[in-house]
C-alpha cells in the first residue's frame, strides 16, 4: 500500500464501474438516514468497499486522506469524491443530496421543536446533559485521531500554537490557519538541496494507511 496508491488509480471523474445512478443515490441516502451518532466514514467504507465493492480499500483511503485535507466535512467531501469517481458529476451531486437530505429534514425539525419547547426547564436540563456528553464524545474522537497522527515535537508544537493563539490570544481561526498552517506546511516542505526538512511527509501519510 505505498507506491500502488499512485500507480493503480484511474483518472478521477471517469466513471470506471457500471454503477447506476439510482443505486448510487440509494446507497448514499441509506447512509444519510442510518448513520446516527457520527462516524460516517465507517458507514461509507462498509457500504462502498465491503458491501457494494465499488471501491477497493486503497482507493477509499486515498479519498479519505484528500477529504481530511480539504475544508468541508468528511461526510460530504467523501460523498462528492466517491460519487464523482463512480458516476461523474451526476454521481457527485446525487451522493451529496442523498447524504445531506435526511440530516436537513432531521435538523430543521429539531429547530422547530426547539423553538416550541427549548425554554421548558426539563428540555434545558436534558440538553445540558447532552452537551456534556457531546464534549466527551468529541474529545474522544480527537484523542484517537491525535494518537494516530501526532509524531514528535513539531506536531505537538503546532497543536499547542493553534490552541494558545485561539483560546488565549483570541486570534481568529483564519489568521491561525494562514500563519500556523503555512509554518507547518513549510516545516514539512519537500526535500531540497538547500536543506532537508525534518522528515519525509510521504512516510507519515503512508503510516496512516
Amino acid at each position: 500500500m505505498s507506491e500502488a496508491v499512485v500507480t493503480t488509480t484511474p483518472a478521477v471523474g471517469a466513471a470506471k464501474k457500471d454503477v447506476s445512478a439510482v443505486e448510487l443515490f440509494g446507497l448514499f441516502l441509506q447512509i444519510g438516514i442510518t448513520s446516527f451518532g457520527g462516524g460516517v466514514v465507517a458507514y461509507l467504507r462498509n457500504g462502498l468497499v465491503r458491501k457494494k465493492k465499488w471501491l477497493d480499500d486503497t482507493e477509499f483511503l486515498e479519498l479519505t486522506s484528500l477529504s481530511n485535507t480539504l475544508p468541508g466535512l468528511n461526510a460530504t467531501n467523501m460523498a462528492i469524491l466517491a460519487g464523482d469517481r463512480l458516476k461523474g458529476t451526476l454521481g457527485a451531486l446525487l451522493a451529496m443530496i442523498g447524504m445531506c437530505l435526511p440530516a436537513f429534514v432531521f435538523m430543521t425539525a429539531a429547530g422547530i421543536a426547539y423553538g416550541a419547547n427549548g425554554d421548558r426547564p426539563i428540555v434545558t436540563a436534558m440538553l445540558h446533559g447532552v452537551a456534556a456528553a457531546a464534549t466527551g464524545l468529541i474529545a474522544a474522537t480527537w484523542f484517537q485521531i491525535g494518537k494516530k497522527t501526532v509524531k514528535g515535537f513539531y506536531d505537538a508544537f503546532f497543536i499547542l500554537a493553534a490552541v494558545v493563539l485561539i483560546n488565549h490570544f483570541k486570534l481568529s481561526v483564519p489568521v491561525v490557519l494562514l500563519s500556523v498552517g503555512a509554518l507547518a506546511i513549510f516545516a514539512y516542505r519537500p526535500p531540497s538541496k538547500a536543506g532537508a526538512p525534518k522528515e519525509d511527509a510521504h512516510e507519515w501519510i503512508r503510516s496512516l494507511q
Binding site: S65, N68, T69, L183, Y188, R189, P190, D200, I205
Partner: peptide, 8 residues
C-alpha cells in the same frame, strides 16, 4: 504531501 502532512 507537505500540505497534507503540515495540516494534520
Amino acid at each position: 504531501a507537505s500540505i497534507q502532512r503540515g495540516l494534520g
